[in-house]
């Protein structure tokens, strides 16, 4: 993978940026996520988190435990506020 390859499409984060953050000491998946906002965009991590885990494991030589995989927040897909605010049922 090229260093300039985009790892997180929602937030435009490259592999290089992930590696740099790991070198700075952000070796916890959650801390890495909160520093770079990986998994906080519309995809909620479906695109990026698995790739970031691979990069993290390769760089640190440690396995990332399944328990530490970030929680997906509702809703599963983005929903307009107007829809959520509406009381009207679809006829």
């Amino acid at each position: 993978m090229k260093k300039s390859a985009i790892v997180c499409r929602c937030e435009d984060i490259t592999e290089e940026e992930v590696l740099k953050a790991i070198e700075e000491g952000y070796t916890d998946l959650e801390e890495l996520r909160k520093k770079l906002r990986i998994g906080m965009g519309p995809c909620q991590g479906r695109v990026c988190v698995q790739i970031v885990i691979k990069i993290l494991e390769k760089k640190t030589g440690k396995k990332v435990s399944k328990i530490s995989i970030p929680t997906s927040r509702p809703p599963i897909i983005p929903v307009p506020l107007g829809t959520l605010a509406s009381d009207k049922d679809e006829k």
Partner: peptide, 22 residues
């Protein structure tokens, strides 16, 4: 529901904006 109702009452143009996470 409560939040989106109140928020769009304060800023109506947000009706068309997507909520991402909660």
């Amino acid at each position: 529901q409560h939040m989106s109702k109140t928020l769009t009452r304060y800023v109506p143009q947000l009706k068309h904006i997507n909520m991402l996470r909660h």
